[in-house]
Amino acid sequence: MLGDLIGEEKGRITGQRVLAGEHGLPPTVESSFAASGTLLGVRVRDLGTYTSRLRADGTLEGAGQGVLMGPGGAHASWRGHGVGTFTESGGNSFRGAIVYESDSPEFAELRGVAGVFEWETSADGDAEGKLWAWR
């Protein structure tokens, strides 16, 4: 069941590069970002990288990974996968699922939970996301 909103963040794309496609697939775009926000009420800094690939139907397939750092050494890592679309303003919009790993007490509620996210990136590189618990 989709649960409560457990995280929000805003940030910026910090770098991008195009990677050659493999096995007949089109090239992928690798994007790195830095964002700040909250997760389970804890202030966090999120550093991540994701790749996106244009699919034949005009949508995007994306996958990524990253690390979260909070005060006092709180930390978590994440992996996500989603599907996206281009926006009329030249950015993109993704929806997907994310899972976390952490041994920090601040993030104990993430164990055994998948998250469902929305991630929006503008044409000039501003980004923001929201995360809901899925139990």
Score class of each variant (00 low, 15 high):
Q16S: 04
G125Y: 01
T28H: 02
E61S: 12
A127R: 07
S122D: 11
T38D: 03
P26I: 06
R43D: 03
Q16L: 01
A35G: 00
G3I: 08
T59P: 00
W132L: 01
F107G: 01
L68Y: 10
G115A: 13
E22L: 15
G37N: 11
S89K: 05
G91H: 03
F94S: 03
G11N: 11
E101M: 06
P71N: 12
W132A: 03
A74L: 13
G72R: 12
L68H: 05
S102N: 10
S31H: 01
P27A: 14
G24Y: 09
D4I: 08
A97D: 11
A34E: 06
G90H: 03
S36M: 08
H81P: 00
G37L: 15
W134H: 08
V116P: 00
E118A: 07
L39R: 06
W78R: 08
T38K: 13
F94W: 15
L5N: 05
G72A: 12
P105R: 15
R111Y: 02
E30P: 01
R53Y: 05
S52K: 13
T49F: 02
V116G: 08
H81T: 13
A97C: 07
V29A: 06
F107C: 03
F94M: 13
Y100T: 03
T85N: 11
G73T: 10
E128P: 00
E118S: 09
S31R: 03
L39C: 05
F94A: 04
G64I: 02
S122K: 07
A114K: 10
V83A: 07
F33P: 00
E8T: 14
S104W: 02
E109L: 15
S102K: 10
A76N: 01
R17S: 02
G21K: 08
G15M: 09
S52G: 06
G11C: 13
G21A: 08
S31D: 02
E120R: 05
T85G: 07
W78H: 12
A127L: 14
S77R: 14
L19T: 10
E101G: 05
R12F: 10
G82I: 03
A114M: 11
L131Y: 11
G11F: 05
G21S: 11
A127H: 03
E101A: 12
G66L: 02
G21C: 09
G24S: 09
G41W: 10
V99K: 04
S122F: 04
E101L: 10
I13L: 01
L5D: 02
Y100C: 02
F107L: 10
L47I: 12
G112I: 06
H75G: 06
G41T: 06
G129Q: 03
S93Q: 11
E22Q: 15
D126T: 12
A34I: 04
E128W: 13
